[in-house]
Every structure is written in structure tokens, then in C-alpha cells.
Amino acid sequence: MMLHTGFKHPVDDAQRNFRALLEALSRPLQPRALPTLPPALPGLAAGTVALLYTLADQDVAVWLPDLPADTLATLRFHTGMTLAASPLAADFIVIPTGRALPALDALPAGEAEYPDRAATLIIETGAFHQCDVEASGPGIAAPLRFGAQGLPKDFWRQWQVNHARYPLGVDALLVADGVIAGLPRSVSVKEG
């Protein structure tokens, strides 16, 4: 088993990545690069690893699919996070490239009195483009077009269902290698 290195400057790197993340989520579907990337881990893109180093710790349960033991050991070593047995019990749900996405409407969506108790998805995709949907909502000055390669065909239809139960619902962070786009539940999309 081999442990990989984490952030070179844990305090600064986490802060700078968090600011990019905060901007990404408050200006949804407007992609931005993460400013500092740690080394990628077997089975995970560098951007995904950066988000986990930035957000996860011993208070957080993360669901990961089957990944090499090195990857899990490294993540546990650097963050102290616990691994969730099922996506239904997770705070963060990581979907690496090519892995199946669980049905969005089955995931923790918060409670009417505590909508913040909802899962956050970290989904690895291919390159971002502008072909799939027209999006609007808080943080979007004028309706904008967005798309991402590699998302399941029915993803945007599922997203409409997710948005329809606002203020409940899951939030998603789309990761195209080192570039991220935020997709909070407040965003409504129209296909085509």
C-alpha cells in the first residue's frame, strides 16, 4: 500500500479551493478552474481529490464506489473522513468518471425544517460545453446555456425533478479534471 501526498500547503490550498468552490456554487454552471490541485489518485481526478481535501474531515461521511486501496487509504489519512456504507447515509457522494449515478430522487434531500441536511454530489464529467440545457436561478444574471460530456442521458430530466422539490433536493459539483461547475438545487433547467 502506498500513500500519496496531499495539498502542498494544506491551509492556503484549502482556502483558495474553497473560495473557487464558493464562487462556483454562488454563480452556478459558470465553470472555473480550481487554483491548486493535489496529485490525482488512482481512480479519481485531481479536481475531485482537491474538493475532498477541502471539505471532508472526521465529521463527514463520504460514499465512494470501489476504488484502489491506495486511494481510500490516502483520502482517509489526509482527511480523517468516514466512508459511508451506502449513498443513502452519505454527506458527500463521489461519482468518478464512468461510474453509475444513483437515482437522484433516492438520495438524502434534507427535511422540510432542515433542508441543509442534504447530500452533495461530486460528479466527474468530460469537458463542459453549452449544448444541453438552458439554466436559470439565483446566481445566474441571465439564462445561460450549459452542458457536460459524460453525464447520463436522463441526468437533466432527473435534475428537473430534483429542482421541483426545492427547497429540498441534492446539490451537485461537476468536476471536469481541474475545472468545476456548481449546480445547487436552486437551479432550474430547460432541455434543448
Partner: peptide, 16 residues
């Protein structure tokens, strides 16, 4: 740890 707790809460606050 405290900053991460606040940061996770801030992301949920922005989402709702």
C-alpha cells in the same frame, strides 16, 4: 476543522 464546518454550512446556505 472549524473552518471546514463553516465552509460546508456556507455551501448549503448558498444552495438554499
Amino acid at each position: 476543522n472549524t473552518k471546514r464546518m463553516l465552509r460546508r454550512a456556507l455551501l448549503k446556505a448558498v444552495a438554499v
